[in-house]
Write a protein that binds this DNA or RNA. Structure first.
Length: 717
RNA sequence: GGGCGCUUAGCUCAGCGGUAGAGCGACUCGUUUACACCGAGUAGGUCGGGGGUUCGACACCCUCAGCGCCCACCA
């Protein structure tokens, strides 16, 4: 090669290393400008098969973490692959209003200005949240763009958009009309700080060292409790019906210390006779299990602690004290009365609010419940019949165990930020008669009393009530016909029940079909020490750090490389591997482009390797194999395997072996096909790798001489 | 209290019936025009312990141990 040619070669990809920073932004802009993220714009047949992926909704409060990077890399690989396969591909993005989480963030902001939400009131507060959302709510979507995600941003939905809200309200009314949604006064998990009920899935657990107080009610009755202050609200003592020790006591009465109330001794199967004394104090108002025992035995509820954690009037002299204070006083009093038999140290787990960490105080309140019986049955059937396949299969058990033992869902929350429930109260009717209607819009005239201006209930819905509708509520009316159902849902295991199960039965109930046919549960990324990555613990590693330093392709490579199925102990050296691989591809492309001459055309025509050298034949054969194998792996969600196989092929078979052979062949007249083979393998490799490392591959593709297609993004696989 | 997963080279992990592989790291050699973010090599493992099935096990079964996760209304 003479100097002139050498100079030409450098002009194609330049002489230096690949600089992702310089090109990623530009390439992403070109993709967006093309409009091809929108399936309606794809140059495919009208009746091309759709391929739809619903993005697990990130919270508006979110910012990109490793979990998102993994999750969305997988989705982007699937989506890009299917698009190159000629499918009408839609990846639907959106954000979740994340009720408690967002309210909490905005409250914290306000507190910095010494303002509480109660001071400014509900309406003003909600305005503040919308302001906050306008300013920060799309951060995560911007970050997903930097990752290279090819979602259809023109369809981005927020779970509180008016169109979405319409479906939420319709769902509520639908459930009510089906008779599945009911109002009840029940003891629920209550966070006194957030002043709202929480579903059991919103609880977290914390080990606590406490005491087990053994309290003597009478000579025959001694109970063990971790919460002596609730004794004031006892309305029964319960024993196991088969407990011979206490058989004779069943049906008799005993006096509650301090308050002097006479309460019955009842028999209930829920009591474990081997624990403590085998006798349990029953406080239906302040314990969820006790509430259920109370229901079974028609026990009254005596509320001694209010929704803010203070003792009520029913607590007598303890009124106004915080529950913890009252506990100390009550224990003192019991001791004085000689009723404290013993106190033993006791370690157990207490439930705490997942948002603020405060201990849960079970409290009775009026809530809305969704009966789960029929919905759970539908969700169960969908998976057992394989209409929805969960991968890996073992998670089907996690799913069905939960649904088989499910309790009715408390869907109301007492916070301000969220979908206000479509329930309207009559001002003239009393609580003991029917005093509300459930309807999509506020009635102009009260249908109950005929005169009053009805008032909407202040409760809002559990965030998951709305996100459960995402696969269809996220679509416009015409899209509902075109892009429902979807195909694969890719997510982490922690929201399998919280969200995936609920989407499945919601889809069946409202759309008549399961919302997707596959659920992929991938591993969780942890620190190298095996600890959970968490911002609050300071153990998180920010994927944006890698994107900024080495580019999105390298970040994606590192994540996917490690995501073999098990949980991942994040290994920094995978980033090194990605960087080297990027460099390898870059240089191989540089070599090929420099070798083939500028009159070459892509895609390479008439490659007949059967006429070539042994090396030609070998690499062509290996290329065919790797292409088929990667396609198969992607279709079976084996992304890491696919990437590793391609890596091995490209680095070792193509670069180490074929390129070296090609150097000799190029100089020889005996190997006329060398240029075609080089072109062909490079071109095909770019396609195969594109779903994994979209920027680098697109960039090189753009530099190929004389090619017709506009973007590798839509090149046919 | 149930259930699940993991334990393979220094590190992070593949493999899952026929006598061990990758990436990163280490070491040796290499100043050839794609790449030193490179090439050619080398070292390094009784595949957590014990038992069993088998002609043969890292792979299958049982059991023990350690680590991690999930579920549960044990007061």
């Amino acid at each position: 090669m003479n100097e002139n040619e050498s100079a030409k070669r450098q002009s194609v990809l330049g002489s230096g290393a690949y600089e992702p920073k310089d090109v990623e932004k530009e390439i992403y802009a070109a993709w967006e400008k093309s409009g091809y993220f929108n399936p309606d714009n794809l140059p495919v047949e009208k009746d091309a098969e759709p391929y739809v992926v619903y993005m697990p909704l990130p919270n508006v409060t979110g910012s990109l973490h490793m979990g998102h990077a993994l999750d969305n890399s997988f989705q982007d690989i699937s989506v890009r692959y299917q698009r190159m396969r000629g499918k009408k591909t839609l990846w639907l993005p959106g954000t979740d209003h994340a009720g408690i989480a967002t309210q909490y963030v905005v409250e914290k902001e306000l507190r910095k200005q010494n303002v509480s939400r109660f001071e400014i009131g509900r309406e003003k507060f909600i305005e503040k949240v919308w302001e906050w959302k306008a300013q920060y709510g799309n951060l995560i979507l911007e970050q997903l763009r930097r990752l290279g995600c090819s979602a259809d941003w023109s369809r981005t939905r927020f779970t509180m958009d008016p169109a979405y809200a319409k479906d939420v309200v319709a769902a509520f009314v639908h459930y009510y009309e089906r008779g599945w949604l009911y109002r009840g006064y029940r003891t629920v998990n209550w966070c006194a700080r957030c002043a709202t009920s929480l579903s059991e899935l919103e609880l977290e657990y914390k080990d606590e060292e406490t005491s087990l107080w053994h309290i003597k009610y009478s000579d025959a009755v001694t109970v063990a409790t971790t919460r002596p202050e609730t004794l004031l609200g006892d309305t029964a003592i319960a024993v196991n019906p088969h407990d011979e020790r206490y058989e004779k006591l069943i049906g008799t009465e005993v006096t509650v210390p301090i308050v002097g109330r006479e309460i019955p001794i009842v028999a209930d199967e829920a009591i474990d006779s081997t624990f403590g004394t085998g006798m349990v104090k029953v406080t239906p108002a302040h314990d969820v299990l006790d509430f259920e025992i109370g229901e079974r035995h028609k026990l009254p509820m005596v509320v001694v602690i209010d929704g803010r954690g203070r003792m009520t009037k029913e607590a007598g002299v303890y009124e106004g004290m915080k529950a913890a204070e009252a506990r100390v006083k009550i224990v003192e009093e019991l001791e004085k009365q000689g009723r404290l038999v013993k106190v033993e140290p006791y370690a157990h787990r207490v439930s705490v609010c997942y948002r603020c960490g405060q201990s849960i105080e079970p409290t009775p309140s009026a809530q809305w419940f969704l009966s789960m019986k029929e919905l759970a049955a539908k969700a169960l059937e969908a998976v057992s019949s394989k209409k929805v396949a969960i991968h890996p299969e073992r998670f089907e058990k996690t799913y069905s165990d939960w649904l088989s033992n499910i309790r009715d869902w408390t869907v109301s929350r007492q916070i301000w930020w969220g979908h206000q429930i479509p329930v309207y109260f009559c001002k003239n009717k009393k609580d003991d008669e029917k005093n509300f209607v459930v309807t999509k819009e506020k009635p102009a005239k009260c249908p109950l009393c005929g005169t009053c201006e009805m008032e909407q209930a202040t409760d809002v819905l559990d965030t998951w009530f709305s996100s459960a509708l995402w696969p269809f509520a996220g679509l416009s009316e015409s899209d509902k016909k075109k892009y429902y159902p979807g195909h694969t849902l890719i997510t982490a295991r922690d929201i399998l029940n919280l969200w995936v199960a609920r989407m499945i039965y919601s889809g069946i109930e409202f759309m008549g079909k399961v919302p997707f046919t596959n659920v992929l549960i991938h591993g969780t990324i942890m620190t190298k020490e095996g600890k959970r990555m968490s911002k609050s613990l300071g153990t998180g590693i920010d994927p944006l750090k890698y994107i900024e330093q080495y580019g999105a392709d390298v970040a994606r490579f590192a994540v996917v490389w490690q995501a073999t199925g098990q949980d991942i102990r994040w290994d920094e050296t995978a980033v090194v591997g990605g960087r080297k691989f990027t460099n390898k591809i870059w240089n191989a492309a540089k070599f090929v482009l420099g070798s083939i001459g500028e009159d070459a055309t892509f895609p390479a025509k008439n490659v007949d390797a059967s006429l070539g050298t042994d090396a030609d034949k070998k690499i062509m054969g290996e290329l065919q194999k790797i292409k088929a194998s990667v396609a198969n792996d992607i279709e079976h969600f084996e992304f890491a395997k696919a990437l590793r196989e391609f890596y091995d092929f490209f680095w070792h078979s193509f670069c180490d072996v074929y390129l070296e052979a090609a150097k000799g062949q190029l100089a020889s007249d005996a190997a006329p096909h060398t240029r075609e083979v080089l072109m062909h393998v490079l071109f095909e490799s770019l396609k195969v790798l594109h779903p994994f490392m979209p920027f680098l591959t697109e960039y090189i593709f753009q530099k190929l001489p004389k090619h017709k297609q506009s973007l590798l993004l839509i090149e046919q696989w």
